[in-house]
Design a binder for these strands. Sequence first.
DNA 1: CGTTTTGTTTCAGA
DNA 2: GTCTGAAACAAAAC
Length: 241
Amino acid sequence: MEGPSIVIATEELAAFYNHKIEKASGSAKFDWSQFKGQKLVITASWGKHLILSFSHLTLRIHFLMFGSYRIDNPRDNRIPKMQLSINGHELYFYSCAIKQIEDDFGDLYDFTIDTMSPLWGGAEAKKSVMKKQNAYVCDVLMDQEIFAGVGNIIKNEVLYILKMHPERKISELSSIEVARLVKVTRDYCLQFYEWKVSNVLKRNWKIFRKKTCPVCQTKVTKIPTGKLQRISHYCEKCQSL
DNA sequence: CGTTTTGTTTCAGA
DNA sequence: GTCTGAAACAAAAC
């Protein structure tokens, strides 16, 4: 799950603000008895981290590749990592990593590098990218310490918009190209959010999971790229080195 | 129906 | 210490 989806989760869960947990359970290793009676006071996100702050404890949830959550409507035959009864509803969290973090989580995170945050600057990202002269652009986009919240879908779509090959070296880019990379990434994250809220995200993918390039009809290349060796989807013709 | 993949942490070994 | 690669986790979508 990428950054924009986590923001949507925080918004959905905000409906439970100031309500007490009536019951908590799950396969994650917690003493669930301590959750009872605690109020949900804050939902927040940083990159791909979903933060749930209760009266006396704060959790950080990461959905990794396959995680999901449901409000009521549980999945059949799946044991949730965490299940909360709150305000007459059941919240289920599946196949995610849940960790307790300090309540004062503001100190743990730099929100200026969260691509979905109102505090996103862009200047920080540009500076960090320029420091990675020897890295490939596909790896830099996935770097959570530079573009927190960007995942493989956003990476591929951004590179397609930029008409940039995934294995372009940062050292080959001009300062203007780096500035454009940073701007397009931020804008696409916000666009991803809008499309997802409207349920039209997948139909707006231009290159990710496409068979051919929508511009030139060339067959989309799908191969592992960069140091990270994550699959890139790109058009050999439109995205030249 | 078998393969792929919206991701990260951990740990052994170099 | 620091880097690297493999393993672990886990399930919908193609």
